[in-house]
Simulated assay, not measured.
Amino acid sequence: MVHDMSYNTVSNVIATWEKVRQVKDYEHVVGTQLFQKFFASTPNAMTVFGFPKGSDPSSKDSLENPRFVKKAKWFIRVFIQMIERSLDMLGPDSELLTEILLELGQRHVRYGVDTSYYPAMGKVLLVVLDDVLDEKTFTPQVRKDWEEVYTALYTDMIEGHNMVNV
């Protein structure tokens, strides 16, 4: 659960996200990398977003397809907002955050999201953070802190997801 994290862990994650926000056009840069790397690592997730099986999120044809671009922008915006809102609520609002994540997990069942997608996105997020942050910022300890925070977030979402399946 998100309320079981130390102050240092939360502080490190929030501070590094502030560094991400300093990247020029960070929502697009980070979001696009997340989108492409997630679908490259989890191609079966693309069908949840309405793409035909076997679509390539990095191909020129896909990137210029208006339907693809619209979905990509939506995915990017929603995911980046979810990260930012979650980080804003860590600490004093963590119990409320847990409730929101449980509900969000329940909602994702309707979208056809598989619980394996949550940790897959976490792995991709770490890769992207490593790509956009320098090694002085994204240290092994900070990486561990991000793993802990994101795991807590998706664990609550999976718990909500599983409530629907019971």
Rank of each mutant, 00 (worst) to 15 (best):
36 Q>A: 10
11 S>N: 12
104 L>E: 04
16 T>A: 06
142 V>R: 00
97 L>D: 03
126 L>S: 08
77 R>V: 05
40 A>F: 07
33 Q>V: 01
30 V>E: 12
135 E>V: 09
77 R>L: 09
81 Q>G: 08
156 D>G: 10
63 L>G: 09
136 K>I: 01
59 S>D: 10
4 D>C: 09
2 V>S: 04
54 G>K: 01
60 K>R: 12
63 L>T: 11
60 K>C: 06
136 K>P: 02
63 L>A: 05
30 V>C: 11
6 S>F: 01
61 D>Y: 05
131 D>P: 02
88 D>L: 08
138 F>S: 00
85 R>S: 14
141 Q>V: 08
88 D>Q: 11
31 G>F: 05
92 P>V: 06
128 V>P: 09
101 L>I: 07
59 S>R: 07
112 G>T: 04
14 I>V: 15
105 G>V: 04
41 S>G: 12
10 V>L: 05
74 W>L: 14
14 I>F: 04
6 S>R: 00
68 F>Y: 14
9 T>S: 03
47 T>I: 15
7 Y>W: 14
99 E>D: 14
144 K>V: 03
27 E>D: 13
78 V>Q: 09
130 D>W: 03
107 R>W: 03
138 F>T: 00
65 N>H: 10
90 L>M: 13
137 T>K: 05
161 H>C: 06
166 V>Q: 11
22 Q>A: 15
43 P>K: 08
1 M>P: 14
31 G>E: 09
102 L>F: 04
16 T>Q: 05
9 T>E: 06
64 E>N: 15
21 R>A: 15
97 L>E: 01
160 G>Q: 00
2 V>A: 07
51 F>R: 02
37 K>L: 14
3 H>V: 04
120 A>S: 14
131 D>G: 01
25 D>A: 14
129 L>M: 11
106 Q>M: 13
48 V>A: 06
105 G>H: 04
158 I>A: 11
36 Q>C: 08
162 N>D: 13
157 M>Y: 02
140 P>G: 00
28 H>K: 14
